[in-house]
């Protein structure tokens, strides 16, 4: 999993150093985030060169606008937002080139990862079933799942990345979880029992359920 924990305090210090003109910190940003940014960008397009161009754009602008930038809480999130904006401005400019039948770029995720360690055949079967269910989510659901469970982002960050409010983000995540759970319950081997369990247990403590 390409996630490493960030300390908000560290981010604040690094950002201040960067604003003060520290080029090493700038290089560190690239080193630390380029893989995550590339992976993220590739969810919107299969055009590697375009993603690379946009990453370059993000870093060049970051450097050039250094004196005009304000406070940033999560550097990762700031860079993700910048990359998404850069990509979307290209998509907007050239719809025909990148999207023939969709107006919005589709968030595409390949869930057929092999590098997840799960022991046992039964578990493997379940994992494959879950992967198929994830595939069936809508692009927006996939996107929110990616932010929350791959990047481990907080709801606030997701709100900014998807330009939605707090409650909408929670609802979007909640609906995605429900969809995965329900489909899984219906399709897995002990599905019936599972389904009953889900439906029978009252959702009193379930603050976020719709």
């Amino acid at each position: 999993m390409g996630f490493d924990k960030e300390n908000p305090e560290d981010d604040r210090l690094l950002w201040d150093k960067f604003l003060a003109g520290d080029d090493e910190v700038y290089a560190y940003f690239y080193k630390r985030y380029v893989d995550a940014l590339f992976s993220y960008g590739m969810k919107f397009t299969s055009d590697r060169e375009l993603v690379k161009d946009c990453i370059q754009d993000v870093f060049v602008k970051l450097y050039g606008n250094r004196s005009r930038l304000g406070e940033v809480r999560h550097i990762r999130v700031y860079l993700f937002i910048s990359l998404k904006n850069a990509l979307f401005s290209v998509f907007k400019k050239d719809k025909t080139m990148y999207h023939i039948d969709t107006v919005e770029p589709v968030f595409y995720v390949d869930y057929t990862a092999e590098d997840i360690m799960i022991a046992g055949e039964a578990e493997e079967e379940e994992r494959q079933l879950l992967a198929r269910i994830f595939e069936s989510l809508t692009p927006r659901q996939k996107e929110v799942i990616y932010y929350r469970y791959v990047e481990g982002m907080e709801i606030d960050s997701i709100c900014r990345l998807m330009d939605i409010n707090y409650q909408s983000a929670l609802n979007l995540i909640s609906r995605s979880i429900q969809k995965v759970r329900n489909t899984f319950a219906c399709q897995s081997s002990d599905g019936c029992r599972e389904a009953k369990r889900i439906n029978l247990i009252p959702k009193q403590g379930d603050r976020y359920a719709k």
């Binding site: 999993m1 390409g2 290089a27 690239y30 380029v34 893989d35 590339f38 992976s39 590739m42 690379k52 990453i55 370059q56 870093f59 060049v60 450097y63 995720v109 390949d110 869930y111 057929t112 990862a113 092999e114 590098d115 997840i116 799960i118 578990e123 379940e126 994992r127 879950l130 992967a131 994830f134 799942i145 990616y146 469970y149 791959v150 979880i177 995965v180």
Partner: peptide
């Protein structure tokens, strides 16, 4: 737990050489 594990997807790797070139152009 399985839910979160299954949400993981294959990361797209940028080969070292390309990473280097990209930094160079930046």
């Amino acid at each position: 737990r399985r839910f979160i594990r299954s949400a993981q997807c294959r990361p797209e790797h940028l080969p070292q050489g390309e990473k280097f070139e990209l930094w160079a152009s930046i």
